[in-house]
Write a protein that binds this DNA or RNA. Sequence first.
DNA 1: TTGATAGGCAAGTAACTGCTTGCCTATCAT
DNA 2: ATGATAGGCAAGCAGTTACTTGCCTATCAA
Lengths: 107, 107
Amino acid sequence: MSDAGADKGHPAEAGDVFKALADPTRRKILDELAERDGQTLFEICSRLTMKHQLGSSRQAISQHLEVLIKADLVASRRAGRYKFHHLNTEPLERLTDRWRNREAKES
Amino acid sequence: MSDAGADKGHPAEAGDVFKALADPTRRKILDELAERDGQTLFEICSRLTMKHQLGSSRQAISQHLEVLIKADLVASRRAGRYKFHHLNTEPLERLTDRWRNREAKES
DNA sequence: TTGATAGGCAAGTAACTGCTTGCCTATCAT
DNA sequence: ATGATAGGCAAGCAGTTACTTGCCTATCAA
């Protein structure tokens, strides 16, 4: 229960998670963090450019990370001038169960 | 042309599924079909308006259904002047496993 | 301190998305 | 055939989104 970066005012609705996952670049960022957790913004940038030929600028990735953090899929942690990003798969757990279990809950 | 709306040229990538799920109205349509499968366009329209106060027009819902069909989340079947829509949960099965199992595959 | 590195903020832009509007086709009942 | 019902097609519009550009702050090494 010592969650880092999870609650920042709103409790990260399910809609935020779906919208965050809707972008291919954001999905690649999650892939990158799944492969190597705890990367900084610059690390993610350069590795994404290397491996996926994704010419995304630093600011673009930064904005994508904001969306992922708001969706509670990424938690960030400051350490000096570095800011490390960690993947949080908890919002993915029962994300699609509402249609598979035939039980709707929220929007 | 006896196909049930599943394959129409492209094989429904994972990105299409995420983008389809990103819209709250489309998620409610899936909720509606999960509760009562095989509804027509007009049925979905009226029931969505009744239960969710969703003032969505017929054309709006029709376009949402197109997106869901392209994502292979909904299959449609013609019968006379009616067109019934069926929920297909198969694309949801291992949708988020790529981050939970630490194994990336496609965009 | 100075310079380099890591990152943040905000305005502007181009493309996309959800929805409307208007008109059209197809099927069925009478 | 005629009208009513079920649905399709396409152009246009407004709000959103992804990205860029430019400048700013903070931390660390020399």
